[in-house]
């Protein structure tokens, strides 16, 4: 029986965005990462090829993380005290890119300074050839204080700077524009707010191929379904041709999953939760895979084992061949 397979023909295409720049393009990265370009829903290879598979970022912090699960600290060992070594370890673990997160304090517990930020970013750039996402602690004043000098000091690297949020995006966008970087915009799980921020950022003159959006998601068990549906809706709108939703999406299942009680706490929890370390990694992996199904272009993870698993899943999803 011949069956006519329903094929979606979409008028829209997700923007193609390249993260990082090699020496030839004014940066120092040995490898760049290109995301986006989809003309179909995720992995519908029978409709259109997926030009760029989703990529995996590993998150690391500029100073030893104070609030990470012990499972993660055990997995990484003492590299967490040295950003350069940590970055190298991330690369070794198989990350496509690195997300460097600044907190409010430096390694000695003092408030972060522009010098500390620039020094750390430079050390990480030195230690790895992977593209880099640099995020401030999320307080407008501090973000602007450290991201502007970081942007200046790394001109041409095509870093992704963030977070641009509704209340604070102008300074970050301006410094990205002046130095050839990209920005990451985050909005709280809402299609319209995401669109609105994208409009505002492009209004400043930043081209669309230099913006990545984080529509925000929840962890498995903690609201993943909202993020999941918002992502599906954003991607559908993008394919339907709505330019302000055609940005590649970056989400952070690592952060979300590892701050749940299930991943963070090993004692005093029900037996029915099973082994702590395995549970934490499963929690992260399931969250990440689900979000990839919903259209994520970049998933940010925290556990090295999750990288391997999610990588296998992406590889499998990228082919129509049977196992």
């Amino acid at each position: 029986m011949p069956i006519e397979i329903p094929v979606d023909k979409w008028p829209g295409t997700v923007n193609t965005v390249t993260l990082g720049a090699t020496a030839a393009d004014g940066g120092t990265r040995s490898k760049v990462v290109t995301i986006g370009g989809e003309r179909s829903l995720p992995f519908m290879h029978f409709e259109n090829e997926t030009p760029h598979p989703p990529v995996i970022a590993l998150e690391m912090t500029a100073a030893r993380p104070g609030d990470w699960s012990q499972v993660l600290l055990d997995a990484w060992g003492d590299v967490v005290d040295d950003p350069a070594r940590w970055a190298g370890a991330c690369e070794e673990a198989g990350a496509d890119l690195i997300l460097l997160m600044f907190g409010l304090n430096d390694a000695d517990g003092n408030p972060v300074t522009p010098d500390f930020a620039v020094g750390t970013v430079k050390a990480v750039l030195q230690a790895t050839g992977l593209p880099l996402v640099v995020l401030g602690p999320g307080q407008a004043e501090v973000d602007n204080e450290i991201l502007v000098p970081v942007a200046d000091a790394t001109k041409g690297e095509r870093l992704v700077l963030g977070l641009c949020e509704d209340a604070n995006y102008r300074t970050i966008v301006a410094s990205a524009m002046a130095n050839g970087h990209l920005v990451l915009g985050r909005t709280p799980m809402d299609v319209n707010l995401a669109k609105q921020l994208n409009i505002l950022m492009t209004d400043m003159g930043l081209p669309l191929d230099r913006i990545v959006m984080d529509p925000t998601t929840g962890a498995l068990g903690y609201g993943i379904e909202y993020g999941y549906s918002v992502m599906e809706r954003l991607r559908l709108a993008a394919l339907q041709g709505d330019a302000m939703t055609q940005l590649p999406m970056l989400v952070n299942p690592g952060y979300e999953a590892w701050r749940t009680k299930e991943s963070k706490v090993g004692e005093g929890v029900p037996d029915t939760w099973g082994d702590w370390a395995a549970r934490g990694t499963h929690w992260e992996t399931l969250t990440a895979v689900s979000l990839i199904e919903a259209g994520a272009d970049v998933v940010v993870l925290r556990h090295p084992d999750s990288v391997t698993r999610v990588r296998e899943a992406i590889d499998e999803l990228m082919t129509l061949e049977t196992a």
Binding site: R170, T171, V173, A178
Partner: peptide, 12 residues
């Protein structure tokens, strides 16, 4: 220029 330019662009 860069320092003031950012402030002009971001509206400060």
């Amino acid at each position: 220029l860069r320092s003031w330019g950012i402030q002009l662009v971001d509206g400060r």
